[in-house]
Structure formats: structure tokens, C-alpha cells
């Protein structure tokens, strides 16, 4: 078990971070190169002002008509994404790992709050799963990949939750937590989780077209 732990927190963790960061940069660069090669006009329509105006509206809860139409989904979506990003970065045990390995340290969440935020992520994932199955308009466009990416995102939180509470099979869940966490990092650039990378650009482009050319709101 100890060797396995060394391996997944050592070389495998390195591989995961390299693939995550390198892959994300690659996807970004590939997109920019493709724009430059085939759709260079996009650069001439991109507007910092209107792009940011659009992004700002769409990252502010209830700032758009569609968010107001779906208040429950809006609340769940925002909480889910905030907790999804903030919890792993500011979890005390993660910060300690950074500290031990790199002498880097930063503020961390109280464990109780982190636990609650983990539950929010898991509950959010269950909400999205149910919505996907129950809503006909979502079900119609759902493919296996949608369930898989939801599982990829939920897995590190479920296993982390179980490992933290140490109710049973602590070591097993710990290992599984690390593995699924690494899997999620690697999946971000190479699955539709890449909306994390692309969405600011698609949003900014639509915002620029609506603001700069069409003189209209896009929210």
C-alpha cells in the first residue's frame, strides 16, 4: 500500500498536473492557432469591453434573464462550481501537502466548512444527474459522455468525503480519492470539461458580437 501511495502521489501526480496544465495550454494554443489560420476575423471583432461585459453578466448570479427563469438551477450551478473549485484549493490537508512538498502555504478552509462544501458538490452532481434523467429537453441531448464527465467530477469529492470521515476502508478510499482527483485534472483539457477553458472565449466572442456589432445585450 505504501509503495502505491508513493507512486500515485509522486510520479502519477506529476503526470496528472503536467497533463492538466500542459493539456490546457495546448488546447488554448491550438484554438488560437486555428483561429489565426482559418477565422482570423474573430480577432478583429473581439472587444475587451464587450467581452468582459458579457462575462461579468454571466458570472454574476441572477444577472441574466435565463438565470432568473431557473432560480433553483442557478443557485445549484453557482454553489456547485464555486465549491468545486474552491474546496480542493483551500482544503487544509491539500495545503499541507503543498507545504510539505514545496514549502508553499496559503490560507485554508475550516474542516467543517470544507466538509459542507464537499457535500454541496456531491448534492449538486446528484441534482444534475436527476435533471439529466428527468427533464426531457436535457435527456434528449444526453449521451454516455455526459454521465461519465459528471462521474469524473463527483468521484474525487465522494471518495474524499469518505476518506476524511474514515468510517471504513480509509486507505482504500484515500487511494481512490487521489486517483480520481488526478483523473479529473487530466480529463479537464481532454473532455467537454474543457468548457472551463473555452467558455470565457465563447462568451467573450458572443459578447463582442452583440455589443460591438449588434449594439444589443446578450443576457
Amino acid at each position: 500500500m505504501h509503495d502505491l501511495y508513493i507512486f500515485i502521489t509522486g510520479p502519477l501526480a506529476w503526470a496528472a498536473f503536467i497533463l492538466f496544465i500542459g493539456g490546457s495550454l495546448y488546447r488554448l494554443l491550438a484554438m488560437l492557432i486555428l483561429v489565426n489560420r482559418k477565422e482570423r476575423f474573430i480577432f478583429s471583432y473581439m472587444s475587451l469591453r464587450y467581452g468582459l461585459r458579457s462575462i461579468l453578466h454571466w458570472i454574476t448570479p441572477f444577472a441574466t434573464v435565463n438565470m432568473r427563469r431557473h432560480p433553483v438551477l442557478t443557485v445549484v450551478t453557482f454553489l456547485f462550481h464555486i465549491c468545486l473549485i474552491v474546496t480542493p484549493i483551500f482544503l487544509l490537508s491539500h495545503v499541507i501537502l503543498w507545504d510539505e512538498s514545496w514549502n508553499l502555504s496559503w490560507w485554508s478552509l475550516p474542516d467543517g466548512l470544507a466538509d459542507f462544501m464537499t457535500i454541496i458538490v456531491i448534492a449538486g452532481a446528484i441534482f444534475f444527474l436527476i435533471r439529466r434523467i428527468v427533464s426531457p429537453e436535457v435527456q434528449f441531448v444526453t449521451s454516455a459522455s455526459d454521465y461519465i464527465i459528471l462521474a469524473i467530477v463527483a468521484a474525487p469529492f465522494v471518495t474524499g468525503f469518505l476518506a476524511y470521515h474514515q468510517w471504513f476502508a480509509y486507505e482504500f478510499f484515500m487511494v481512490l480519492h487521489i486517483l480520481t482527483g488526478e483523473m479529473m485534472l487530466v480529463a479537464i483539457p481532454f473532455t467537454r470539461l474543457s468548457h472551463m477553458i473555452y467558455s470565457p472565449f465563447t462568451r467573450a466572442y458572443m459578447g463582442s458580437e452583440f455589443g460591438g456589432v449588434r449594439h444589443a445585450k446578450d443576457w
Binding site: E39, N66, R69, T142, R192, Y198
Partner: peptide, 25 residues
């Protein structure tokens, strides 16, 4: 087609939130 189509297809999270925008739907 180029980066636009690719980004649109790779970014769409299949959430269905566009549905209620459409008068056909």
C-alpha cells in the same frame, strides 16, 4: 469551419438551457 465550431461543440455541456429561448420548442 474552424475554431468556432470546434469550441462550440467541445464547450456545449448539453444542459438544455437554450430550450426555452426557442419559440418552436
Amino acid at each position: 469551419t474552424g475554431a468556432r465550431l470546434k469550441a462550440y461543440v467541445d464547450t456545449c455541456i448539453h444542459c438544455g438551457l437554450c430550450s426555452e429561448a426557442c419559440h418552436y420548442y
